[in-house]
Amino acid sequence: MIDILLMILTGIGVALFGFVLQTSIAGVNRKVVARVQKRYGPKWYQEFLDIFKLLSKRSVTHGWIFDFGVIMALGGIIGTAMFMPLTSSFMAFDGYDNFFIFVYLIAVGMLGMAMSASGSGNPLASIGVMRALTTMLAYEVPFMIVVLTIIKITGTSSLSEIGLFQQVAGNSWFFIALPIGGIVAVMALMGMLGKKPFETYIAPAEIASGPMVEYGGKQLGMLFIMHEITVFIEVSLFVHLFLGGAENIVLFIVKYFVVYTALNIISSVYGRFKIDQVVLFFYKWPLIMAITQAFIAIYLGWVI
């Protein structure tokens, strides 16, 4: 009994750590992007100020589906983050860090957000949700092919075991061992995070920030927290699957920071695709590359 309580507390601690880490790194990244654009940039803790300001504001509601969806989204995402291993040996629920757990649980949060956005009754929110689901459909297919290739090679779907497999094999990360698949994963990750070329479902100038169009005050603050934890989950997945996990927490933070900053720098020089361009793009080159990589790695056995 005490064990389970302790595990749950550790899990909440992991989620909180993820929130603080991602929010700080997002603040630093706003400064990085500002320097790319020859600006000075905000303070590094600006993201914290934004979130706490939103929580301090008054807000209106558009019915209980609207409020309940926000809580469901935040709760679902915190529940998902509780299972995330930080290093290859430290995790809240030992043995439950299966890749598919994340795939399924992250959908709870996303569905909560979609439900709440539709509950607001704004047509732009519905368009945004529809675009988000379409983008998801596009990037999931090549990403899943690459991840299944990794699972076939390692023979396990546990994140920490995959990380350990790469460390035991002499630090041959899958990002290097499966170079084509690594590139596909970077592109899919940009789609997951909604970074610039695939920013279609946010599109502030086009559909007024999509699903978030009717949120203000406390609900928007909770959605921001949810977004930060979602980014934490997705980038951590990439670190564990492709960059050899992490032996200790410092290495994890360094790898995390490098991945997120690189994505932001790539994203800061791009414009935005249209939604049909996103789908066509993901179904063309990343899909071909992913299938090629799977064929090379599984049937020919060419893994560096």
């Binding site: 654009q37 600006r39 000075y40 303070k43 934004d50 504001k57 978030m212 203000g216 005050g217 928007l220």
Partner: peptide
């Protein structure tokens, strides 16, 4: 807003809808 005076260093930024704005 852009690099000449950069109001983001004061924490200000553009928002898309009235609900989100201060």
């Amino acid at each position: 807003m852009t690099s000449a005076y950069d109001m983001e260093r004061l924490g200000m930024g553009p928002m898309a809808t009235p609900r989100q704005a201060d």
